[in-house]
Amino acid sequence: MDPIDTRLKLSALWMFVLLNMIFRDIHQFALKSHLEMLLTGTYNGIEITEGLMLLGGFLIEVPIAMVVLPLFLSRKISRPATLLAALITATTLLSSLPGDMDDLFFLLIELAAILVIIWSAWTWPKVGRRNG
């Protein structure tokens, strides 16, 4: 099997993480308790404010941006950006520990993919046409 270009691998892995994050959130809409909390403007005891929504927008933009950035940035810039984005995303995911088994399932998959992202960025070869 031919090795996968590191840029494409990182982009695909970020897409995988992002899709799992999105589906995890959409999946919650099947729960009556989730919808009731959203309608009250308070979620798990935290008031949903414009500032909190803006922060959430910034935090979800990290993996969204990382789907395309490895494809356009040089290795020199993309490698540390990927490592920083992985740290931010993992911290964001861990900040809302799962309340049920399906959330834990998605969290474990997302964190495993982020570990592969970190490993791929960390071991990204300096030279080579396929990985540069």
Results as ranks from 00 to 15, higher is better:
residue 46 I to T: 14
residue 51 G to L: 12
residue 37 M to P: 03
residue 24 R to P: 00
residue 46 I to H: 10
residue 79 R to C: 12
residue 39 L to D: 13
residue 85 A to I: 12
residue 54 L to W: 13
residue 60 I to H: 13
residue 35 L to S: 05
residue 74 S to F: 05
residue 42 T to K: 07
residue 60 I to L: 13
residue 52 L to R: 14
residue 85 A to M: 11
residue 41 G to L: 11
residue 53 M to I: 15
residue 54 L to F: 14
residue 92 T to M: 07
residue 52 L to D: 04
residue 73 L to D: 02
residue 88 I to V: 14
residue 47 E to D: 12
residue 91 T to G: 14
residue 82 T to Q: 15
residue 24 R to T: 01
residue 40 T to C: 03
residue 29 F to N: 05
residue 32 K to D: 13
residue 30 A to H: 11
residue 58 F to S: 04
residue 89 T to R: 04
residue 78 S to Y: 08
residue 77 I to L: 15
residue 62 V to W: 01
residue 30 A to C: 01
residue 41 G to N: 07
residue 53 M to A: 14
residue 24 R to D: 13
residue 65 A to E: 02
residue 33 S to W: 06
residue 57 G to P: 11
residue 81 A to I: 10
residue 56 G to A: 14
residue 75 R to D: 12
residue 28 Q to L: 13
residue 24 R to A: 12
residue 68 V to T: 02
residue 62 V to L: 04
residue 89 T to I: 06
residue 30 A to Y: 12
residue 90 A to P: 04
residue 51 G to V: 05
residue 72 F to K: 00
residue 68 V to G: 02
residue 24 R to G: 03
residue 68 V to C: 01
residue 39 L to N: 14
residue 42 T to L: 02
residue 80 P to F: 03
residue 22 I to E: 00
residue 64 I to A: 11
residue 60 I to R: 03
residue 62 V to M: 05
residue 42 T to Y: 04
residue 24 R to E: 06
residue 92 T to E: 04
residue 84 L to G: 06
residue 86 A to L: 09
residue 62 V to C: 03
residue 25 D to M: 01
residue 31 L to R: 13
residue 31 L to K: 14
residue 82 T to C: 14
residue 61 E to F: 13
residue 64 I to W: 03
residue 71 L to P: 00
residue 23 F to L: 06
residue 96 S to D: 06
residue 26 I to M: 06
residue 35 L to G: 08
residue 56 G to N: 13
residue 43 Y to V: 14
residue 36 E to S: 08
residue 59 L to P: 02
residue 35 L to V: 14
residue 76 K to V: 15
residue 25 D to Q: 03
residue 54 L to I: 15
residue 56 G to R: 04
residue 71 L to N: 01
residue 61 E to N: 08
residue 89 T to W: 07
residue 85 A to S: 15
residue 33 S to P: 04
residue 67 V to M: 12
residue 48 I to R: 07
residue 50 E to M: 15
residue 55 L to G: 05
residue 33 S to G: 03
residue 66 M to L: 12
residue 37 M to S: 10
residue 26 I to Y: 06
residue 59 L to K: 09
residue 29 F to M: 10
residue 74 S to G: 12
residue 81 A to F: 15
residue 52 L to P: 03
residue 83 L to M: 15
residue 62 V to A: 05
residue 40 T to I: 06
residue 90 A to Q: 06
residue 73 L to P: 03
residue 22 I to C: 01
residue 87 L to Q: 04
residue 32 K to C: 01
residue 46 I to R: 11
residue 86 A to D: 10
residue 49 T to H: 09
residue 96 S to Q: 09
residue 73 L to S: 02
